[in-house]
């Protein structure tokens, strides 16, 4: 699991790699918390996510609920899309999803 932030003023972007599962959500939430305190908007690139479970999906929802901050997820890989689609949360998360990625 890896999460690297690149801050640009009040904006930050991050690349998440490895698992987004029950084994990593605790650590990830702490990392997100310390970054979100400092910035107004955070964009998380999920390209490198290899595996996700319910806990991971839930963390995405939780992150979205950070009061007053904008959190966006981009580049959902198949592992993430499958679950978002299964849980029918695409619209609830509100991130642009690429159908092409589902097919790959």
């Amino acid at each position: 699991m890896g999460l690297e932030f690149q801050r640009d003023g009040t904006q930050s972007s991050a690349r998440l790699t490895g698992e987004l599962t029950i084994y990593t959500v605790g650590e990830l939430k702490t990392a997100l918390a310390s970054e979100l305190v400092a910035v107004d908007a955070l964009e998380i690139d999920l390209t490198g996510v290899t595996e996700m479970d319910t806990a991971g999906l839930q963390l995405m929802l939780i992150a979205k609920r950070y009061p007053g901050k904008t959190v966006q997820f981009v580049n959902h890989p198949p592992a993430v899309l499958r679950l978002v689609d299964l849980a029918n949360l695409g619209s609830a998360l509100g991130d642009p999803l690429y159908l092409a990625a589902v097919e790959s």
Partner: peptide, 27 residues
């Protein structure tokens, strides 16, 4: 075939109050 799923998120606390290892979701 799963025809439809509604994920129930209203038990989800806000960011600070949430323990990411607890399941808040209903389906």
């Amino acid at each position: 075939k799963i025809a439809h799923i509604e994920t129930i998120t209203d038990q989800l606390p806000d960011f600070d109050g949430a323990d990411p290892e607890i399941c808040y979701l209903g389906f």
